[in-house]
Amino acid sequence: MGRFRRLCQEHRDRIYTFAFYYMGNREDAEDITQEVLFRLWHHGLRMDDEGVAAWLTRVARNACLDALRQRSRYRSVVSTQDPEPILQRTPAVEADDVDLRRQLEAALTRLESPLREIVIMREIQDLSYREISQSLELPLNTVKVYLHRGRRRLRALLQE
């Protein structure tokens, strides 16, 4: 349990951050983080520490996609609800900033895959192109092209 606990402590915030911005709400982010760490316990402990980060990101991304698929199936038979507020309102955060961030986070959840994960990983999580390339198993130049495309698409979404 020692190694597993250490890996959980090292990676859980990163997984949670990724899932939160990908899914746009805390509840899904918690479920996905738990699912990813459970899969680490179940399957992933055989790999070395260097490979774990990329593997976890890949699993997190797939778990997000699975959750979105399930949600779309669920929403096809159940009435849709308004998305919950993403950012918690705190006195320290200006109302305009809150609004801006909400818009940005909402726009992120409307980006297509893999643009969404690449923008999150590069701009919010500050991963290198090489790390993104390994995690998503995409060529490095493709990652760059998708990143630029994703930012352009985000700008367009924010202007709608």
């Binding site: 459970f38 701009e123 352009r152």
Partner: peptide
């Protein structure tokens, strides 16, 4: 606009995973 967007994206905070996730994970295991 492009510069501002990148700045805003990079200002989005990294988040802390709630302890409830670890507890739920332990229970599940």
């Amino acid at each position: 606009d492009a510069r501002r967007l990148v700045g805003e994206l990079r200002d989005l905070p990294a988040l802390t995973c709630p302890d409830a996730v670890s507890q739920a994970l332990q229970d599940r295991i």
